[in-house]
């Protein structure tokens, strides 16, 4: 992808510890995500990967260490200016949309909160950007399918034109063919709007498609940070990562076409 002109990191975490009550769930997490990069956090449930996203978004306020987004350190409270630079998309589109608000209301709300005008035009434009027909504008979530809802959730996150997107398993609740559509959409939006992605997932092939680098988490710690090329040959240093790679199907060389295209285009 396009190499970042500015050396400034989009997201920078230093010695981040996060607790829920008296239980420490994330320890010593440090990494930088460059501007324009797509970075994955990989791990099993309970490894703390979603918690890291929540801490960045301000949903898990009990943390110590340093979080800065686009060079600005983040405080512990909610922060209006922050939500204009960084937004989150949640895992389950069946749970993350208000059941009694229409798509139009959901999309206008962030604009109203931030006192931005021309809401109607912006909603229309955003529906187009995420590939939803205008007829969906005044529908309720229960009148939409899972894929359509996730498009609405992505549109809502993009309404304030953030530069950094936090994606928490954006496709794990969706069917394979719908997942392909949403992944394509996310990839296109990143290209068009120059976004930075920090994406949580447990699906390694999705990382291979979407991301440039990944951090592997286990039991609240990062055990390894690897480039996506490590997925091509399984060249991981950490034993836990190797297990995860093997459990995800490892290197399926049964598909001769896949290996051929891999040789042709190592980038």
């Amino acid at each position: 992808m396009s190499s970042p002109e500015t050396p400034q990191a989009a997201i920078s975490l230093k010695d981040l510890d996060i607790s829920y009550g008296s239980t420490k769930v994330v320890r010593d997490v440090s990494f930088d995500v460059a501007t324009g990069e797509s970075f994955a956090l990989v791990g099993e449930s309970g490894s703390g990967k979603s918690t890291v996203l929540k801490a960045i978004a301000g949903l898990a306020p009990d943390w110590t260490g340093e979080i800065s987004v686009l060079g600005k350190p983040r405080g512990h409270g909610t922060d209006r200016a922050f939500s204009e630079t960084c937004q989150m998309v949640f895992q389950d589109p069946y749970a993350s949309l208000h059941p009694r608000k229409t798509v139009d209301t959901v999309l206008s709300e962030p604009l109203a909160i931030h006192g931005i005008g021309k809401r109607s035009a912006k909603v229309v434009e955003m529906l187009g950007a995420v590939g939803l027909d205008q007829r969906f504008r005044f529908r309720f979530p229960h009148q939409l399918s899972g894929g359509q809802r996730q498009r609405v959730a992505i549109a809502r996150a993009l309404m304030l034109e953030p530069k950094v997107m936090l994606l928490d398993e954006p496709t794990s609740a969706l069917d394979v063919s719908v997942q392909a559509e949403i992944l394509n959409l996310l990839k296109r939006l990143r290209r068009e709007q120059g976004l930075t992605y920090l994406m949580v997932t447990h699906n390694l092939p999705v990382v291979s498609f979407m991301c440039d680098r990944m951090a592997v988490m286990n039991k609240g710690r990062i055990v390894e940070i690897a480039p996506k090329t490590a997925l091509y040959d399984g060249s991981f240093a950490d034993p836990y990562t190797r297990d995860l790679y093997a459990a995800s199907g490892g290197n399926p060389d049964a598909d001769p076409e896949g290996t051929a295209s891999h040789l042709k285009d190592p980038a």
């Binding site: 394979v176 990839k187 092939p205 498609f209 997925l231 995800s248 290197n251 896949g258 042709k264």
Partner: peptide, 12 residues
């Protein structure tokens, strides 16, 4: 439509 471990396609 499934992403592969050795993904080289730009679009699914």
């Amino acid at each position: 439509a499934q992403p592969r471990m050795q993904e080289t396609r730009d679009e699914l």
